[in-house]
Computed example of a mutant assay.
Amino acid sequence: MQPQTTASARAYALPSVKFQSIATIIAVVAAVALPQVFHLAGAATGLGTMIGQTLLPMHLPVLLVGLLAGPFAGLATGALAPLASFALTGMPMAPMVPFMVIELASYGLFAGLLRGVRLPVAVPSPLGWLGKLLAAQVAGRLVDALAIAVAVAFLGNTQMTVASVWTAVGTGMPGLVLQWVLVPVVMAVVDRHRD
């Protein structure tokens, strides 16, 4: 006789390969399209193309797919999105592509790994997801800083510095706040529909 699975256990189980694959494709499309929408909006409103660096539109689908579909979907989306975006739009700039791949793949991987972590204390759904999101963001930034440090120290890359990671955090603070609001809300809605 098999034990019954609870809604909580089902929530932490990895979804089917089909779901992960479809989620990855949708997330890659969103991660390529959202920056273009933000750039167009920035140009139309006179805010310029810096709006993309400020609101971090490519990060949102990567983090969400990791939390929704798991580490494989998160990693694949994070790795494929900058490559697809560069191939289709020429953005991000070529020297940034490897670092974007590493950073976004890290975000997606860590978000996916954290999706199934049970918190040691009972917290309301949005706060639990916010904690997981923050952990994924910190881990992704640390991996990005490490990749840049390796590029500077061993590969002689003079276009990047480790300090640029922390500058990017400051520039992207509005985008981080947007993620802190939207991601937990989306995940809390998903949780309600799972129960």
Rank of each mutant, 00 (worst) to 15 (best):
G140K: 07
A151N: 08
P184C: 07
Q20E: 15
L56S: 10
G78R: 06
A168W: 07
V152P: 07
V190K: 14
L68C: 12
M91S: 10
V177G: 03
V189I: 15
G175H: 12
G128S: 04
Q137G: 04
A136W: 00
M91C: 00
F99L: 07
A31V: 02
A33P: 01
T24S: 11
P95D: 06
G172Q: 08
A145V: 06
M100F: 03
T6H: 11
M93F: 09
A44Q: 12
M96H: 02
A139P: 00
L176Y: 14
V150E: 05
H59C: 06
W129H: 03
R118Y: 02
I22P: 10
G46S: 14
L47H: 13
M100I: 02
L130G: 00
V117Y: 12
A168T: 00
A168K: 09
L119A: 06
M58P: 03
V62C: 10
G42M: 04
M1N: 11
G112N: 09
G78P: 06
V165Q: 04
G175F: 12
L182T: 10
L109H: 00
P92D: 03
A105P: 02
A73D: 07
M173S: 10
A69M: 07
M93P: 05
V190N: 11
T161K: 07
V190P: 08
P35C: 07
I102Y: 03
P61V: 09
G112K: 08
I102T: 11
V28Q: 00
H193S: 14
V186G: 06
V37K: 01
L119Y: 01
A149I: 01
I26L: 15
V28S: 00
P61L: 09
I148N: 03
A168G: 13
M93D: 13
H193Y: 11
V162F: 04
M58S: 11
M1K: 13
L114S: 04
A136E: 00
G175D: 13
I148A: 08
M50W: 12
W166Y: 13
G66T: 06
M50H: 11
S16V: 11
Q36N: 11
P82F: 01
V169I: 13
A87G: 10
